Amino acid sequence: ELREAFAKVDTDGNGYISFNELNDLFKAACLPLPGYRVREITENLMATGDLDQDGRISFDEFIKIFHGLKSTDVAKTFRKAINK
């Protein structure tokens, strides 16, 4: 299930999730959020999830993000976006 969610976000299939891919995910989900809020959520996920600070999120980092977000608003938003 997590591998499928990761693949859905990794639209270019390079094995990593970029800032733009995350941002595009939230935009495509048509969530009722202003653009600046989408950017804040994306920046927050990148800042906390990109553990090796290479500017992208690997599958291992994605798993840690996903499990670390349990019930936060960001987690709910992220799950809604993935499930669209």
Rank of each mutant, 00 (worst) to 15 (best):
L45V: 07
G13K: 05
E1C: 06
K84P: 15
F19Q: 06
N14C: 05
F78S: 15
A47S: 11
V38Y: 06
F62T: 04
P32Q: 10
R37L: 09
G35Q: 13
L51Y: 13
D60F: 02
D60Q: 10
E21N: 05
R79F: 08
D24R: 06
P32T: 07
L31P: 10
N44S: 11
A47Y: 04
A75W: 07
I17A: 00
L2R: 04
R39F: 03
F59L: 08
F6Q: 01
T42H: 07
Y36H: 15
I65M: 08
T77I: 08
R37Y: 04
E40K: 06
A28K: 11
T11E: 05
K84W: 08
T11G: 04
P32I: 03
D60Y: 04
L31T: 12
E4A: 10
R79H: 14
N23T: 13
A28R: 07
T42Q: 09
G15M: 00
T42W: 11
H67Q: 13
E40P: 02
N20W: 04
P32F: 03
S71Y: 11
G15E: 02
A47P: 04
L69A: 10
M46K: 14
D60E: 12
R39G: 04
T48D: 11
I57R: 00
I63A: 14
E61K: 06
A29S: 09
I17E: 01
K80P: 15
N83S: 11
T77D: 14
M46Y: 07
I65T: 03
T11F: 02
S58K: 05
G55C: 06
G55D: 10
T77A: 11
G68C: 13
D52K: 15
N14G: 02
R39P: 03
T48I: 05
F59P: 02
A28N: 07
R37G: 05
D12P: 01
K70C: 12
F62I: 11
R39D: 09
L69H: 06
F26M: 08
L22N: 01
L33S: 05
T11C: 06
P32C: 04
G35A: 15
A81K: 15
A81Y: 05
A28S: 06
K84H: 12
K76Q: 13
G49H: 12
Y16S: 08
L2D: 02
L22T: 00
F59R: 02
T72M: 11
R3D: 02
I17S: 00
R39W: 02
G35Y: 10
L45T: 03
L2Y: 04
N83E: 14
V9S: 02
L25N: 01
F26D: 01
A5E: 02
G55N: 07
